[in-house]
Write a protein that binds this DNA or RNA. Structure first.
Lengths: 238, 238
DNA sequence: CCGTATGATTTGTCTAGTTGTATAGTATAT
DNA sequence: ATATACTATACAACTAGACAAATCATACGG
C-alpha cells in the first residue's frame, strides 16, 4: 500500500492553515519559492499541492502575481430596494467602490427607450467597480437622464456612493423595477476590471430603477464575478 | 549450507567502504543505476542491499535525490535555561539553524489561551530546523505575541538566532515554564524536514517560555528526530 | 503630473534524471 | 513441486534546472 504522497500531505497542511484563518480569504499566499523552501520540497512538488487546492477551489493563482486564497462565494441579495453596501456589510465585509468613469454623452437608442427620453438626449454615465474587502465583486455601468439630475456628476466627485449622489440631486427614494440576468464570459477588459481570468463566467444584470412616481431614472448594467458571487433573487415585496 | 546471497555480499561490500570512509557521512552514494552496473546486477538486487543498509541506519535515501550516508545520534539536555547552541556545541558538533517560515497571522484559540491574548490577536510565527553538523536534529515552531515584539520578524531577517532576535526586541532573559513531551510518528511533511523516513518516531515537545515577570512570551513546539536525539531531562534549578 | 520603459518578481511549462513501487517472468536449491 | 533469489520492464513520485509569460514596482522623460 503506497503511503501518502508528499504533495498530498503538503496540500492537507495548507488546507488546514487556510481553514484556521492563517491566510484570510483574498490574501496572498507566500510565493511558490517560499513555500517550497518552507516545506523543503522542489517547487514542482509544491505546485502539485497547490494545484490540488486550486482544483478544490480553495486558491486561485495568477501568473506574475501570486496565489490567492479564494473568496467564498458571497450571497448577493437581489431585491427591489437592496443596495450594494448593505449586501456586503451583511456578509461581514468591508464594501468599497472605485469609480473609473464619469461623463455625459448622448443616449443610445436602447437607453433612450428605457429611460423614456428622446433619442440623443444627454445622459450621465457612471462606471466603476464594487469591491468587498478590496476584492472586486462586480463592475457596473449606470446611465441617468441628464436633465433630471443636472448636478449628478458633480455630486459624485470626491465620493463614491451613487445613492448619496442621487439624494443630493433631490431623489429621496428609488426602487428596482425590473432585472434581467444572463450568464456570459468575461472579455479581457472586463476580466481586468474584476481581476479574474479572461473567459471566467460572469453574471450580467441589467436593471431599471424607478422613482416613487414610477418613472425610470437609472438604467444600470452590472457584471458580477461569477465565482465570487451567488445572486439570490428574493420575491418582490409590495 | 546456502552460499551467501548476492545482495548480502553487495551490502557487506558497501558497509565496508562506508566504514573505511570511502563515503563520508552525509555524502551521496553513486546512483542505483551506477551501483548496479558496477556490481553487474539488476537494480532490484542492488536495492535489496541498500535496503539492508538503510534498515541498519547506515544510509538514508531520498526519492529523486539520491542515497546518503547517515550519522550518529546526540544527547540533548532539556533544562530551564539551556539553549540549542550550547547543547550541540557541548556534544562537539557545529550547530546551525535553517529558518523556513516567518509570518504573522491570527492566533489560534489554544495559542491565544497560553499566551494570554484575545482570540484572533496577531502572533508572529517562526518555523525552522535545527541542525548539528548539517544534519537535522529537530524541527521547531515558535509563536510570539506580535504586539509584545513588533519588530521580531525584522530582527530575524538575515540571521537565525531566536534568542538574539528577542534580545533585539528588548527581552533580556526568559526561562522555560513548562514542557510537555509526547511520542508521535512523523508525517510526510515533518519527515521531510527532519530528513527521516515517514512513520519514524518523533519526540514532540511543547514548551511555554516566560519572561522575568512571569508572563508568557513564547509558545514553542519542537519535534526531535527520535533516532538522532536522546532527550535528557534535568531537575529544575531554582 | 502622467505615460513609458525597464528590471525584478512570480507563476507556467518543458526536459531530464533519480528513487519508489508494482507486476511478471526465469533459474536454482531444497 | 515449490519457495527463494534474481531479472526485466514499466510507471509513479520527486528533484533539478532552464526558460517563457504575466505582473508589479520604480525610475525616467515628456
Amino acid at each position: 500500500m503506497p503511503r501518502e504522497a508528499l504533495w498530498s500531505a503538503i496540500a492537507a497542511t495548507l488546507r488546514a492553515e487556510i481553514a484556521e484563518g492563517a491566510y484570510a480569504p483574498g490574501a496572498r499566499l507566500p510565493t511558490e519559492a517560499e513555500l517550497s523552501a518552507r516545506f523543503g520540497v522542489n517547487r514542482h512538488t509544491l505546485r502539485r499541492a497547490l494545484s490540488d487546492l486550486a482544483n478544490a477551489g480553495l486558491v486561485v493563482s495568477r501568473r506574475g502575481s501570486g496565489v490567492f486564497v479564494a473568496t467564498r462565494p458571497t450571497d448577493y441579495q437581489l431585491g427591489r430596494r437592496v443596495r450594494f453596501h448593505q449586501n456586503v456589510t451583511a456578509s461581514g465585509r468591508t464594501p468599497s467602490r472605485r469609480i473609473s468613469r464619469l461623463e455625459t454623452r448622448p443616449a443610445r437608442p436602447e437607453e433612450a427607450e428605457v429611460l423614456d427620453l428622446q433619442e440623443g438626449a444627454a445622459v450621465h454615465v457612471i462606471e466603476g467597480v464594487s469591491l468587498a474587502d478590496g476584492l472586486p465583486l462586480a463592475a457596473f455601468q449606470s446611465v441617468f437622464p441628464a436633465d433630471r439630475f443636472p448636478g449628478l456628476l458633480a455630486a459624485m466627485e470626491g465620493q463614491s456612493s451613487v445613492t448619496a449622489a442621487l439624494t443630493a440631486c433631490g431623489l429621496t427614494d428609488y426602487t428596482r423595477k425590473e432585472t434581467r440576468l444572463k450568464a456570459k464570459l468575461a472579455d479581457p477588459v472586463l476580466a481586468l476590471a474584476l481581476q479574474v481570468q479572461p473567459g471566467t463566467p460572469v453574471l450580467r444584470s441589467v436593471a431599471v430603477n424607478v422613482d416613487a412616481a414610477g418613472s425610470a431614472i437609472e438604467y444600470g448594467t452590472t457584471w458580477f464575478a461569477g465565482d465570487r458571487v451567488t445572486l439570490m433573487v428574493s420575491p418582490d415585496q409590495p
